[in-house]
């Protein structure tokens, strides 16, 4: 088991003929993902590594029964692409694009609210179920099927954590990058709930950072509803207030969103908070060891 995606997931890549789109579509396919279609308006009839290209998502859905979309469309057109996928009946949309205007996402998030569709991202590395299905830009080889679920607002920092889990032999079930933007499709809470129900996931690593109050919301939920061990890491204890640290959403404003505060709230909710980036894997290992045998 895993959450959201597995070897049966049928993937469409929007923006497949672009440089990023074609490279990553090929990489995902090589990982074993069923990449069944691509969309670039005006390029129907072409193929990318044997993947048929369509003009519209509607056509792609009709011809290939794809159910999940991976988006590499440039920022100015990404909102359109997400809405097109939702309208064509795609159930899971993974948007990699960085730099989408926030107000575009305001409209998109509102439009998706009443639909039976889930958006992951934008500005994220994607989602991967180890050894089954990679829908994103993460390096596949660091993942290994195993016991830990990973949820993160970051990219390379997630790879760092995953690599530690794999090296220690723990492995992962599903890893999701939820995105570094202020407005994202899916937050920690929904995914924590899914991991709690997934029989193969024994613990969850959640990687947060400064800015917003998503970790605080997650903490409240964990306190109430999560029984499995949760290992938390928050990046940005040294980040100054009022400055955007790379990610559009990583900014301390009006004294809110500080790392120390988030760590304290998570700890209060029973999350095992790691201070040292290098010890995320080790902490997960300790949490999964039977009592007294550490």
């Amino acid at each position: 088991m895993s959450i959201l995606v597995n070897k049966f997931t049928r993937v469409l890549v929007q923006g497949i003929t672009g440089k990023e789109g074609s490279f990553h579509a090929t990489q995902c396919k090589a990982y074993g993902t069923q990449v069944v279609a691509g969309v670039t308006p005006g390029k129907a009839g072409q193929e990318v590594e044997g993947i048929p290209v369509f003009n519209t998502v509607r056509d792609a859905v009709q011809k290939t029964q794809c159910d999940t979309s991976l988006i590499f469309v440039p920022p100015a057109f990404a909102a359109d692409a997400i809405l097109e996928a939702a309208d064509a009946g795609i159930r899971l949309i993974v948007c990699i694009t960085e730099g989408i205007p926030v107000n575009d996402m305001v409209r998109v998030k509102r439009a998706l609210r009443d639909r039976d569709v889930r958006l992951i991202g934008p500005n994220c590395p994607g989602i991967i179920t180890a050894d089954e299905c990679k829908i994103g830009i993460m390096p596949g080889f660091i993942h290994k099927k195993g016991r830990v679920g990973v949820i993160s607002r970051s990219g390379t920092l997630t790879y760092e954590a995953v690599n530690q889990l794999t090296t220690l032999g723990l492995g992962e079930t599903t890893c999701i990058g939820i995105g570094g933007d202020p407005i994202i499709g899916t937050g920690y809470v929904d995914l924590l709930a899914m991991f709690e129900k997934d029989p193969e996931t024994e613990a969850v690593v959640m990687i947060g950072e400064i800015g917003g109050d998503a970790e605080e919301k997650a903490a409240a939920f964990i306190k109430q509803d999560i029984r499995k061990p949760v290992i938390g890491f928050i990046a940005g204890i040294t980040a100054p207030p009022g400055r955007r640290m790379g990610h559009a959403g990583a900014i301390i404003t009006g004294g809110k969103g500080m790392a120390a505060e988030k760590m304290a709230v998570l700890e209060d909710a029973g999350v095992i908070v790691v201070r040292n980036t290098a010890e995320i894997g080790k902490t997960a290992q300790d949490a999964l060891s039977p009592r007294g045998s550490v």
């Binding site: 830009i137 993160s152 607002r153 970051s154 990219g155 390379t156 920092l157 997630t158 760092e160 570094g180 990687i207 950072e209 400064i210 890491f233 990046a235 940005g236 204890i237 040294t238 980040a239 400055r243 640290m245 790379g246 990610h247 990583a250 790392a259 201070r275 040292n276 980036t277 290098a278």
Partner: peptide, 30 residues
Amino acid sequence: MVNGAGLAMATMDVIKLAGSEPANFLDVGG
């Protein structure tokens, strides 16, 4: 100098944890 914003922040933090202070945040990107 780090690739990726989250890892860049985590790197700053680990410098502090090791007993010093970071001079900057620098993400050279994916």
